[in-house]
Amino acid sequence: MGKFDNHGLKAVTPLGGFEPRVDAFTGLLIREVSDCALASLAARQGDEDVLQSAAKSFLGGSLPEAAAWNEHGDFAAWWMGPDLWMVSAPHDEHELLAAALKEAVGDAGSVVEQTDGWCRLDMEGSRCFDVLERLCNANVRAGKPGDATRTSMEHLGVFLLCREPGQRYSIIGPRSSAASLHHALVTAVNAVI
């Protein structure tokens, strides 16, 4: 899984495979996405503006507003809380994302590697609304592209990123519970489709 695997340790995905898992249903797909590096970025007190502009030049665009996500080239970012974002980039090219980001923002920000803290499951297909309303209280039918909602699915705290309303979403939850999150999603899909 990428050039940093040249050492003697072989990576596994959050769902435990050597390759990401794909589950296909009639008109709907659940895809495990494991090729992203993640780093959290928090503004230091008083340096919020400095951080914003440093992040902007690093990412190639502004950090997203509250409850939103955006992407600029390789980089995507979503809002996690006041003055706190998660930045994502392809793992192959950016395994050391956290270090690079820290270098870019310096003392204006606190950066923490989060790559393996999460599992990401992408859902694609026409029945996404029906599936998601069995899983979380987010008002998905009123959602728009770029929404990033922290919500809870079967007792698991997750980020729900809307890529295309009703059609494409990313669900990002805690890695240790990847199997439970996957089970919840598959169960909900089977209940609907």
Partner: peptide, 10 residues
């Protein structure tokens, strides 16, 4: 005091 534990942690 309420903590938005399943949200933005405010």
């Amino acid at each position: 005091l309420w903590f938005h534990e399943q949200g933005d942690r405010s």
